[in-house]
Simulated assay, not measured.
Amino acid sequence: MYAKCGCTEDARELFDNMSEGDVVSWTAMIAGYAQNGLAQEALALFEQLQREGTKPNEVTYVSVLSACAHSGLVDQGRHVFDSMCKNHGVTPTREHYACMVYLLGRAGCLDDAELFIYKMPIQPDSVVWMTLLGAARKYGHAEIGRRAFDRVVKLEPKNATPYVLLSSIYAAAGRKDELAKIRSEMKEAGVKKMPGCSWIEVDNQLHAFGDATHPQSKEIQAELDRLVGLMKKAGCDGCKQIPPF
C-alpha cells in the first residue's frame, strides 16, 4: 500500500521492521521499488534477498525485470533473466519473455528483441508481439513493425490496436501508400477502432465521460464551460472550448 502510494521510504521502514519476512514480502518491496522507478534499489534488495537465503519465485523475477526495463538497464536485465534457470531453477513464462522484449525494445535494441522472440522455446503470444510492435512504433522501425503486426493479427484478427500502431509508424515516416494500404486492410477485415473512454464510479454507479445520454449532461457541460472560462481569465491562452459532453 505504501509503495503504491509512492511512499517507498515508509514501505521500506515497515519491511525492515518485520520480525520474519518471506518471499512474498521481499517481492512486494522489490515490486514497490520497480513501480516507482527505483531500479537500483530494487536490484540491491534482490541481491540481499539471495544473500539471506530466500529463494525468489516467478513473481520476484517479473518485478526485477520490470525495474530493469523501466530504467533501461539492459545488461542487468539480461543477467537476471539468465540467472533464473541457472541459479534458482525458475522456468521463464511468457510474462518473463514479454518483460525481456519490453526491456530490449524500450532501450532501442529492436533487432535483439525480435531475435529474442524467435529463439523463445515456447510459442510467443500476442502480448509479446504487441510489445515489439509498440517498440517499433516508438523508434519508427517500419519493417520490424510490419512483421510484428502480421503476427499479432494472426493471433487476434479483430484487435484494432496493431492496425493503429502500424498506421502511426507509416504516418510518422510519411509512407502514404503503406498507410492507405493498412487502412484498407483494416476496413476489409471489419476491424473498427473503439474510441477511448474514461469512467468514474460514484455511489456504486458507473459514469462515462462524454456520455450525451447522461441525465445531468447539461449541468456537466455548463460546469465544464465555467471552468474553461476561469482558466482563460487566469491566463491560460491555450484553452479552447471543450466539445459538447
Rank of each mutant, 00 (worst) to 15 (best):
D211N: 15
V59A: 10
P56D: 08
I122M: 14
Q241T: 14
Q123P: 10
G190R: 05
E188G: 00
R183G: 11
M18P: 13
V152Y: 00
G140C: 07
R151C: 14
V59W: 10
K4I: 08
Q76I: 05
G32S: 03
T91F: 02
P56F: 10
V128W: 02
I169T: 01
T213Y: 05
N57S: 08
I30H: 07
Y61K: 04
G37R: 08
V62E: 03
L165Q: 06
E156G: 06
D203N: 10
R78Y: 10
R146G: 04
K192E: 14
T54A: 02
A98D: 02
C7P: 00
G174T: 09
D125N: 08
D203M: 05
D22Y: 04
R151W: 14
K193R: 15
S19V: 01
G210N: 09
S19H: 00
A3N: 11
H141V: 15
A222G: 11
G210K: 12
E143L: 01
M120E: 11
D75Q: 15
Q40T: 01
Q216D: 08
D150Q: 06
A173D: 04
M84D: 03
V228Y: 01
Y2K: 03
S198N: 11
C236T: 03
V191H: 15
F116T: 04
S167Y: 03
T60D: 10
G6Q: 11
H96S: 06
E188H: 05
P157S: 05
A172Y: 04
S217P: 05
V24K: 09
N36D: 12
P162W: 04
D75H: 14
D125W: 01
E201K: 07
L165E: 00
Q35L: 11
R147C: 07
L132P: 00
E219T: 06
E41R: 03
C99Q: 07
E185W: 05
G210C: 13
A11E: 11
W26P: 04
L43K: 01
A171L: 06
Q35S: 07
V24Y: 13
V24W: 13
A113D: 05
S83R: 04
L165W: 00
D16S: 08
S25C: 07
K86E: 13
A234T: 01
N36R: 09
F209C: 03
T131P: 12
G190L: 09
Y170F: 15
K119N: 14
E114I: 05
G134D: 13
Q205W: 01
T60I: 11
V59L: 11
F46G: 02
D16I: 01
V24N: 04
L73D: 10
S63A: 15
Y163M: 04
A3C: 12
C99W: 03
G108N: 04
S25G: 00
D203Y: 02
C109V: 10
S168D: 15
